[in-house]
Amino acid sequence: MSHTPDPSHLPDHDSVYDGLLGGDDSQWAFGTDFEDPLAGVDTTVPDGVDTHELATYCLMLADDALVMSHRLSQWCSNAPDLEEDIALANIALDLLGQARLLLARAAAADPSVVPALPAGSPVPPEDALAFFRGDREFRNVRLVETDNGDFAVTIARLLLFSTWRLALLQRLAASRDHVLSAVAIKGVKEMTYHRDYAGRWFLTLARGTEESRRRLIAGLEATWPLRAELFTTHPVELAVAGSGVGVDPSTVADEVDVLLEQVFSMSGVDRPDIAPLAGVRGETGRDGLHTEAFSRLLAEMQVVARAHPMGSW
């Protein structure tokens, strides 16, 4: 016997949730409607810039932010205390916002980078890029994709990531691409307090108890092999630096080193001397070659969207 109610007996309503709150749908306000983050923004590509190179570069910057954001959001309800839970979620939200703008910019620059979906699918380009690309199509550095580890590992990684990205975005502010320039100028404000947060916790853990110091050093050593990749120039990065829209990451290496040295010396921590993690036949994250942990991350991040390619969120 079926328990499904006959639809003709249900009261007329606009939402199936009306019975819960008497038709006040304000609690569904966020995330129920698609908002193009670049609505009304001029997305014309500057003269002399290859649209596919620009889009690929935007994906690199977007994927770094998206994957780092996802890892940080995994701390929700798991952080050492409520304040850190909120702090990591706030940082994750800023990075997610940067990722959305950059994914939308990639799609606007070259729509061919957006995966094809079934005809009539309402999934917007930024979501198609986030949820319907396979691991080989993601261009993020491997630093952001490995497991969170404990809080000390997360802090060591966030220090490296935010110091590097802040330096990159400061230079990207001068991009000839007005969208990238605007995203960078905004991002600099946000990365500044992300870096401060990571630096303060790095110092606090290093000067805390014997156990916190032990874990911090272990976290830094676990993260360090993925550092060199941040400053290795990919041909696409070289090309967009040449056309004045992007930044060659090797140019920020010295500045990042000086800042890290400042944190290390105040913390009484030695700069690790550990070899970089090798790529596969010379290919690394920027080429779409990732670690095993990344496949598990993607599976979790994408499963719902992929199960409903015609879904509207």
Binding site: A29, F30, G31, D33, F34, L93, L96, G97, R100, E190
Partner: peptide, 14 residues
């Protein structure tokens, strides 16, 4: 937007 990830933008627009 106030912040890059401000989730209130869609509501403001609506």
């Amino acid at each position: 937007p106030t912040y890059s990830g401000c989730p209130a933008m869609a509501t403001m627009r609506d």
